[in-house]
Amino acid sequence: MRWLRNRGMVFWLVAAAFVFAALAAFGPRLARDRDVRTLFFVVDLTRSMTARDYGTTDAPRSRLDEAKRMVTEIVRRLPCGSKVGLGVFTERRSFPLIEPVETCRNFAPFTEAVSRLDWRMAWEGDSRIVRGLASAQTIAEDFDSDLVFITDGQEAPPVPTAGRRSAGNPDTTAGLILGAGGSALVPIPKYDDRGNPDGFYSLRDIASGALVSIVPPDAERSGTEHPRNNPVGNLASTSNEHLTSVKADYLREIGGEAGLGYAPLGDIAEIEEQIEGHTSAHRLASTVDLSPIFGALALLSLFSAYAWNGLVPWRRSPAAPLPLNTSRERLSS
């Protein structure tokens, strides 16, 4: 008893710090529900996604590289128990590669699968985004998941000036579109038959691929267009379809029609906010780790122990040896 009474405040603070640190080390847990999501990522693999407008001038990164990086980043931030799936879009349709699976157990193979995405997987050069989006929504609905559609909004062949088909079924799936690319126009790399770089697309390539429908409605009257001999009119002088930038307004528009949100690809905070707002969360029973609380208490106690010794003013009267004066005189002599 006497031993206990003779311990000072500092002792008890250090002892408390030890108890809290030990508790933190053995990881007490508390049951609590957690919000998990099921996301189906669809990455645009069309040629314009190889345009390099991310990164620095010394080390440019393509939109596809950035898309892969961001998908990995989003998956990393999802709580365990969430599910993610992967698909690709090119031509007119989306194609599933991986059905949604749990993120934490399958993190390594999933992110590696994402990193292996390549424009060479694209089976056609066309890029009909509205139809691709509709097919992605159908697949996402089958998977009972929400859609994250990553594209730059570059349609190829160009959208008919007469108007495009509208994006559909806003009720069945939720999700968002991520717009890849910078706001400045950049050229689209071109590759030869064997996949080797071969310069950039020119307007001539675009015009020869778009034999229908990009002619302005009044072209026939202006005399520059002929249905057979010169179907694209004087496109060359007016168009910049061979260059690409992120078509944010266009993507917002079709996202609005399809009931999807929009966020630029580079901004993880905005993406998380949009995911929060545009995808549904399921509650999942899980546990929350209490060790940070005990850790903080341990830190506080230990810090107080030092503060007590260093900062609290000295209040105790010194112990008084009985014949104080005499002994001090003797000592000093």
Partner: peptide
């Protein structure tokens, strides 16, 4: 029409 890598060896 094109080869697609889905899941790497795991």
């Amino acid at each position: 029409t094109a080869p697609l890598q889905a899941v790497p060896l795991t």
